[in-house]
Design a binder for these strands. Structure first.
Length: 425
RNA sequence: GGAGAGGUGGCAGAGUGGUUGAACGCGCACGCUUGGAAAGCGUGUUUACGGAAACGUAACGGGGGUUCGAAUCCCCCUCUCUCCGCCA
């Protein structure tokens, strides 16, 4: 959540950043400032009473130990009223604090200066395009047709065993996916990210830490019997490694990566956009996560962007980079860049990566801090990005690399697949 | 799942109702000492909030209770360890 200090000190900047999301938060911001003022006042009053009560208790202790029972009794009788006052102040103070939290929780992150204002994806800015569409034979097949023809993915089996959106990958399809995962992980490790295999379920505190809870509760699968959530992305377990951590000095740059399945309920999705691999309840993704000082986070963001570009270029995919407008930027992000690859058979752009800077929005919830040069605790910046999400990359590669005799495997993947081309068996 | 033991500062580990935010030790930082180092000596060394500061308040796994006063007593939850059971 937004730091309350920032709201107080840079009210206009906060309002401007939120306005890019089409949100007028003037009322909430004023309310928070007023509540915070009241809370401070109440807190001081509360502490005054506590000070007095502590002093009396101390005196009683001394009196007892010196055998002055009578004097102690007199003092004791004075504490009743104070305790009542203490209770009252405490209740008021806690109520105020909760109210502030409640309002704060409703506010999304403040968008940065470069984020374009706008309501939906039509306002996103295309900032870069790379590559050209492959020249395919007439009537290229969409990936779900190719998947059937070469027995790569079985959607019907998934429906039988689990339900829609849970496909089986099989044979060369399974191998192809595994090759992509290995390639992405190796590239990340080469770029200095530490590889993790993480839990696939997380507790409530972790969900809150990265901002999925409470605002996206309905999007996660929930295991009621054990009070756990299936992860919607590796971002959640990876970032939460650093929940409640204070890094001891300002010279750090934490780079994590992990490959996990991602589980998303995708409530309300339907239609042709969900055809084939375009939208699934379970899919695989390699995620990269970074924890940086505020001074370094913008640089880190661009390193991540460059990393993703290089992956797409090595795979020979045509892509474009979008800077999302405020309305399309996720709740916790300050700025987000999306990567889309061109799917030649479907003739459309598919989102394959989303890279975001969260500034202190997550770390404020996570209580993830570092000691600066003056040994002061400051909140870290967190960032993450997909590098990459598997299904749509697979869809694009299948479609774009189809030839009459099969489907060509991009060169960098061949050492992982063990074959150069997907063929009919 | 059953039985027992336990969760205290960076670590190790005292502390069973009173000036204990917490002994002693290790580690760490700074200083003294030294040609330099070690040893030695001294000082310091949790976090959050309020405050310009002095200082104050809170926190001994989490939550609640008893009490003038709780790390210490009571209740609930949770986690760890040991033994048993089960098991890829």
């Amino acid at each position: 959540m937004i730091e309350i200090q920032r709201i107080k000190e840079n009210k206009e900047e906060v309002l401007l950043g939120l306005s890019k999301r089409n949100i007028d938060a003037k009322q909430e911001v004023e309310q928070i400032i007023a509540l915070d003022h009241d809370w401070r006042l109440k807190k001081t009053q509360l502490q005054d009473v506590e000070t007095e009560l502590n002093a009396i208790s101390k005196q009683i202790g001394v009196l007892f130990s010196t055998g002055k029972q009578e004097e102690a009794k007199v003092l004791k009788s004075k504490t009743g009223a104070l305790k009542e006052a203490l209770q009252a102040f405490k209740i008021e103070e806690e109520a105020l604090e909760k109210k502030i939290q409640d309002v704060l929780f409703t506010l999304p992150n403040v968008c940065t200066q470069e984020v374009p204002a706008g309501k939906d994806e039509t306002a996103n800015e295309i900032i870069e395009e790379f590559g050209t569409s492959p020249s395919l034979e007439e009537a290229p097949l969409p990936h779900w047709e190719l998947a059937k023809e070469y027995t790569l993915i079985d959607f019907e089996l998934g429906v039988k065993v689990t339900g829609a959106g849970f496909p089986f990958y099989r044979g060369q399809g399974a191998r192809f996916q595994r090759a992509l995962v290995s390639f992405f992980l190796d590239e990340a490790v080469d770029a200095g990210y530490e590889e993790f295999i993480s839990p696939l379920m997380v507790n409530e505190n972790s969900g809150k830490g990265t901002g999925q809870l409470p605002d996206k509760e309905g999007q996660m699968y929930y295991i009621g019997a054990d009070d756990l959530y299936l992860i919607p992305t590796a971002e959640v377990p990876l970032t939460n490694i650093y929940r409640d951590v204070i890094l001891p000095d300002p010279n750090f740059s934490i780079k994590l990566t992990g490959h996990t399945p991602c589980f998303r309920r995708e409530a309300g999705s339907y239609g042709k956009d969900v055809r084939g691999l375009n939208r699934l309840h379970q899919f695989e993704k390699v995620e990269i996560v970074r924890i940086e000082t505020p001074e370094n986070s913008e640089k880190a963001l661009h390193e991540m962007i460059d990393h993703i570009k290089s992956l797409l270029q090595k795979l020979g995919l045509q892509y474009r980079v979008l800077r999302l407008c405020g309305g399309d930027t996720g709740f916790a992000a300050a700025i987000t860049y999306d990567f889309e690859v061109y799917s030649a058979a479907q003739e459309k752009w598919l989102e394959v990566s989303s890279v975001s800077r969260f500034d202190t929005f997550q770390s404020n919830r996570l209580k993830l801090r570092f000691k600066d040069e003056n040994k002061k605790s400051r909140l870290c910046h967190t960032l993450n990005g997909s590098a990459l999400a598997l299904p749509r990359i697979m869809a694009a590669l299948l479609e774009n690399n189809q030839v009459p005799t099969g489907i060509n495997i991009p060169e960098p993947l061949r050492k992982y697949t063990g074959f150069d081309m997907i063929t009919k068996k």
